[in-house]
Each structure stands twice: as structure tokens, then as C-alpha cells.
Write a protein that binds this DNA or RNA. Structure first.
Lengths: 191, 191
DNA sequence: GTCTATATTCTGATAGAC
DNA sequence: GTCTATCAGAATATAGAC
């Protein structure tokens, strides 16, 4: 059980990176198979439903990565305000120099496909929900009422996604850092 | 001076609508000329630099429209918190039923093109800056310190753009309404 | 099962008729 | 100046060799 679907993994990894960076429509299947080094036949063998299926799997792949990262910050930093701020600062750091930008989670792909593909829309919605739940659970664990925690999760997720978009457009980490500064305002002490 | 560049205006109007709704890469020039009823020759006559120039003009066109709308809310509602909340609620209303969705300002196009077209990136950045300035000026007029007002403008703009994205993906106005509820937290009384 | 070569459609762009 | 017909290339997808 050592060398199983290594080719599938490579395609998925390359696709995830390119979809995040360029979006759905700007990323061609030819580019994916070229950069991953795999032939096009493998792509349709592993993802019989073509681009849409590949993109859906890529979103799940990216989502799990981000989930793990958020979870890690929440577990390691006791104060939820500081934990969220540290996560945002880490996300901001990549916008320092344009050539270091690695990806724009799934906001871009979600916007592109929400009106044209139900399967893709649903995996994006699920990704957002998972992230928001991790944040909300951290807040609940720290004394927040459930309803307030869930709403705060949505607000913080919006701020981060919007902030990533502004940082990308401005080629500057400044917008995301400003967002980070405002987190204490959203999470005023409750309990 | 009655029937001047009526054809140009029609192309621009159709292009603006489609770019907002579908994004840059998903919107073909053929679709624009088909829906606007104009021939392709006219498009390249009025926009010699092709798709990129047309998209840049479309962003400016959309930006002016949104500017006027924000300005209108800021002038008619005295309290800045209520004014911003009313603007967000109006933006949210279109996500009630999917078929009524008119557009996603410029966030989608900005994300798609930030890394591949400097001219497009710059017009998007300018649009964001204009909107943020209108909000910041309203806050300054109501006793906010300039530095705080500018930062609040960025935060609110991020929340709105992120909220639009979430509402689009969820096909629900709920995320934007939650954003609206959280505006008082950002704009706690200062002066 | 893995991969290559090809089919079909559509893209942005242009040349040139009127 | 206004528009039509067409270009070369890229898109997704498939057929079929091995």
C-alpha cells in the first residue's frame, strides 16, 4: 500500500493551487496537466466528470488545509481575540510581495461559480461553514452565547474574505492588518 | 447633439451587467455584443484595446453607480451607523431570490484580474478607495478622528464585499443582514 | 489501467467591404 | 465610420492505442 494513487494526488494538488490563484475560468485543464506533469488521460480517469468534479475536489482539499490551520491557531492561543488576530496576520504576510502570493482560499472560485454550478456552490458553502464553526466553537468555549458566537463567526469570515480580496487588489497586507486590529471591536467581552 | 454615442453606451451598459454577474473570464465578447444588439465591429471601434479596455470602462461605470447610491444614503440618513446599515440592507435585498441578483459590484472582477492586469487592478482599487472615502467622510463629519474614520472605511468595505460573497454563495441575504447588525460594534461612539 | 492524438466548439481579435 | 466574415489559437472533452 505504498505507491497508491500518487498521480491523483499530484493533479489535485496542482489544481488546488491554480484554482486558488487564478480562479475557475482562468485555469485551463491543459495548464493543470502540464504543471502537474500528468497526462490528460489520467485527469479524466481520476475525475470522470471533468473540470467541475476536479474543482469540487480541489475546494475540499483547500478547505481541509485551511481548517487545520485555523484549528491550530485556536488550540495554541488561549484568548480567542488574539488567536483570530494571529491567524489573520499570518494570512496577511503573503501579500507583502506579489510573487509570494500562494492563494485566495475559495472566495474567488465561490463567486465565479455560485450562479452556474450547484455542486461547486455547495462545496464552497460547506467550506465556509466549517471555518465559521471552528471560530464559533472557540468563542463558545470562552463564554460566548451560542447565537452570538455563530453570528460572530459569519462576521469574522466576511471580514477575512473581504480583507483578502482588498489586500490582493491593493497588493498590500495593510487592509488585512486593519481588519486584524478591528477584531477586538467585534468580540467585545460578553460572559 | 441628440443621437451621439448611443451604441457605445449600450455596449458599456451590457458589459457592466455581465462582468458583474459572471466575472471577467466567464464573460465573452460574443455574449456582450449579442445581448447588447451591437455588432462586434462597433465594440472594437469604441474600445480599440479590446476586452481589457472595455472591462476597465465597465468597472468605472459600475463604480460611479455604486458611489451615487452610497452617497445618497449618507446624505439622507443623519446617523452614520443607520445610514450604513440601510445601505447594506438594500444590497442584501437582491439575494432573496436568485433570479433577482443583479451583480457583485467589482470584488469578483478585482480578484480575477489583480494578478494578471495592472490597468484593471488599478481601476478596481480606485473604485474601492472612492467608496471607502465616502464612508470615511461621513464619519469625520460626525465627530470621528480622521485616522479612525479611514480605517473604519476599510473595515466596513471588507465586511460588505465579504458579505456579498457569502450571500451570493449561500443564495441568502442572511450573511449580509448579520453584517449589518454588527456595524454598531465597529462604530462605537467616539467623539 | 495508463496515456496520446484528435474532435469540436468557442474565444478574442482582425481584415476589409460598404 | 459602420459592420460582416473570418482568423488563429485555446478551451473542454473523447476515442482508442498500448
Amino acid at each position: 500500500m505504498a505507491n497508491k494513487p500518487d498521480s491523483r494526488e499530484k493533479i489535485l494538488q496542482t489544481a488546488s493551487r491554480l484554482f486558488q490563484l487564478q480562479g475557475y475560468h482562468a485555469t485551463g485543464l491543459n495548464q493543470i496537466i502540464k504543471e502537474s506533469g500528468s497526462p490528460k488521460g489520467s485527469l479524466y480517469y481520476y475525475f470522470p466528470n471533468g473540470k467541475e468534479e476536479l474543482a469540487a475536489e480541489a475546494v475540499k482539499y483547500t478547505s481541509r488545509y485551511i481548517e487545520a490551520k485555523i484549528q491550530s491557531f485556536m488550540e495554541q492561543v488561549p484568548d480567542p481575540v488574539v488567536a483570530i488576530q494571529e491567524f489573520i496576520k499570518e494570512a496577511a504576510s503573503q501579500f507583502d510581495q506579489p510573487e509570494t502570493i500562494k492563494g485566495i482560499p475559495v472566495g474567488l472560485l465561490a463567486s465565479e461559480t455560485a450562479l452556474i454550478s450547484e455542486p461547486l456552490r455547495k462545496v464552497c458553502v460547506q467550506a465556509f461553514k466549517n471555518w465559521e464553526t471552528i471560530i464559533a466553537n472557540k468563542l463558545i468555549k470562552n463564554g460566548y452565547e451560542e447565537d452570538e458566537a455563530v453570528k460572530a463567526g459569519t462576521v469574522i469570515n466576511s471580514m477575512i474574505e473581504g480583507g483578502i480580496m482588498l489586500s490582493l487588489a491593493n497588493k498590500s497586507k495593510a487592509p488585512l492588518l486593519t481588519i486584524s486590529e478591528s477584531i477586538p471591536l467585534i468580540l467585545h467581552r460578553k460572559g
